[in-house]
Design a protein around this nucleic acid. Structure first.
Lengths: 342, 342
DNA sequence: CTGAAAGCGCTTACAG
DNA sequence: CTGAAAGCGCTTACAG
């Protein structure tokens, strides 16, 4: 059974395709009677406009693309939810692609989305991405693009971020305020901007409090994979290298939970012997023991805001107005729990 | 800057659109020289075929739709990952919609996907869905559809499932084997098939072991929301009603973690005083304390299998062969951890 | 109020 | 080996 077309409706009713099209879209220059007839038949036949044909004509796809490094990830899946919900409100569909933190894949996916003629692109860039030609190409096509969370400062598009540096500063300051004297940092991979910013916030907090900055206390994740295992491994290494450390600020909750698990296993008391602050406020962090002090990062809201900004730019371009890149910074908050002292 | 078209390439090269189209697709009846010229220019101009035009002609969108009740959910996000990965391999794009467990939304989304002329639909149905006309309509259009996890037995399409009844039976049997004498069940909402099947598995295990089935030990989640809070509430209620219960089989890990949290808080020892088995094997369950005994449900694999089946049906229809609905049951496994006795 | 016509950007059967 | 032509299913400026 082939889908019903305007032509079929027109033939049934012995009127033109033009009139059918107009009737369905409630053009004022179609008689009430005709509209009624057309709409009724369309409903009976279960007519659904062919999106390809519509898009080909109108140059609008009512579809946006989303490229995200990982899907199975509390923060990112919250962002997806925010985007999908907001898009739906405005009648937009979302094509989701996962880059797996790979530059090559990300590049291929941008091409796919461009070929798909999406109305705009939402992207959180991969850790592996150091070259931005594929992203600049999107902008050169005057196609709206909004980056969120993992951004490239150098690309001139709108960005929805948090103040990673400030949040990391707050996290570190909290460790200092609760009496930690020697504070390590698990910074994650080298490349992404938020790793860099979080590291800088950590460093600044130390210096502002007249505490020495010791590079050997900063653990880098070489594998690029911010995982539970990574947290365990770094924790083991830390215990070997620096038994005097009494606080750690960790880049991501999942890694922090790995570390916490390792300390629990080795019988090291949290927070008495070592305090931990994570980052992102995954749900999990509120149910492990001890519960994890962390930075709340508003994923759902970030997704919502990202779509809203993209939508604005889509509208602007449609109306031939210039779209001016805008950077929106969302608020974060320190969530105090059991992994740090009072 | 408008996207490049075949026509532009043709004019540049002073040849016909037909030849350009064929050259790009490596038709054998185009000279090597022309192919070289066309391909080079296409690359220089960064030509990307307009998917709408292609789809309108070929009646293939190389796009599938996915309707899922929740995105922020360990199991479902694993399924999404499996689907997206497998689809990508075959050159398919995935449009993801979240039904929020609402029948109304789900219905609207099916319409959207149909209008979008996706090549097939993957769906896990909402708890609120009791009427299946919208799904039968998809089948009437001869559009491939595969259900996974949350299915409707009555709809005649392919299904990827686990044996919920057997898995629940295994979970309950494990409680019995480890010495539990009075076993409760948090069954979740009434409607969905897997709630029903898990409940039946629980009941059968009791009866097979000559243990009485007591309906008052079965807790239903009225709100329809299988959450952490729900677990806490049911646990509180259980303690009031039946202080003699020494084991619980819980429908979902998240709810189990809520219950576990409540017991921890009230100082009730797990598994000494009460044993708990969850369902799904969320990552979280392996890091809370005590760690949760649960049923491993292969999300990623389910996503992969679902796409593969859908792909087969898409191919079958393309070749005018009949697609015969198939039900594939994936293996589950009991994962023993600390929340049950040895 | 109604409709003929052009055109969006492709693909492909057919002719030469 | 190359190309003219038809057509996929819509929308919309224009004529009547």
């Amino acid at each position: 059974m082939k889908p019903v077309t305007l032509k079929q409706i027109a033939e049934h009713l012995n009127i033109s395709v033009t009139t059918v099209s107009k009737a369905l879209k409630d053009y004022p220059d179609v008689s009430k009677k005709t509209k009624g007839l057309v709409k009724e038949l369309a409903k009976t036949l279960n007519y659904k406009p062919n999106a390809f044909a519509v898009n080909l004509r109108t140059k609008e796809s009512k579809t946006i693309g989303l490229i995200i490094p990982v899907i199975v990830h509390h923060f990112f899946s919250s962002v997806i939810k925010g985007i999908v919900a907001q898009a739906e409100k405005k009648g937009y569909l979302v094509i989701i692609l996962q880059s797996n933190e790979s530059y090559e894949l990300e590049k291929k996916q941008i091409d796919l989305l461009l070929s798909q003629r999406v109305d705009g692109i939402l992207i959180s860039i991969a850790n592996g991405t150091a070259n931005f030609n594929h992203l600049n190409e999107v902008l050169a096509l005057n196609k709206p693009m909004v980056m969120f969370d993992k951004i490239a400062k150098i690309v001139k598009c709108s960005k929805i971020i948090i103040d990673d540096r400030k949040a990391a500063y707050d996290a570190t300051q909290h460790l200092i305020d609760t009496g930690c004297k020697r504070i390590a940092h698990f910074r994650g991979p080298l490349l992404p901007q938020n790793s860099i910013d979080r590291f800088l916030g950590y460093k600044k907090a130390l210096l502002d409090n007249n505490m020495p900055y010791d590079p050997s206390l900063v653990y880098i994740c070489e594998c690029g994979d911010m995982s539970f295992e990574e947290g365990k491994k770094s924790a083991q290494q830390l215990l070997k290298d620096h038994s005097d450390v009494d606080g750690i600020f960790i880049n991501t909750d999942l890694v922090a939970i790995g570390a916490l698990n390792e300390f629990n296993k080795q019988g090291i008391k949290i927070p008495e012997e070592i305090s931990i602050v994570g980052f992102s406020n995954w749900f999990m962090s509120s149910v492990i023991s001890p519960t994890l002090t962390t930075i709340d990062q508003p994923g759902y809201q970030m997704g919502k805001t990202a779509f809203k900004q993209l939508y604005k730019e889509i509208k602007a371009i449609k109306n031939k107005k210039p779209k001016t890149p805008k950077t929106i910074t969302l608020e974060t908050a320190l969530v105090k729990r059991e992994s740090t002292k009072e």
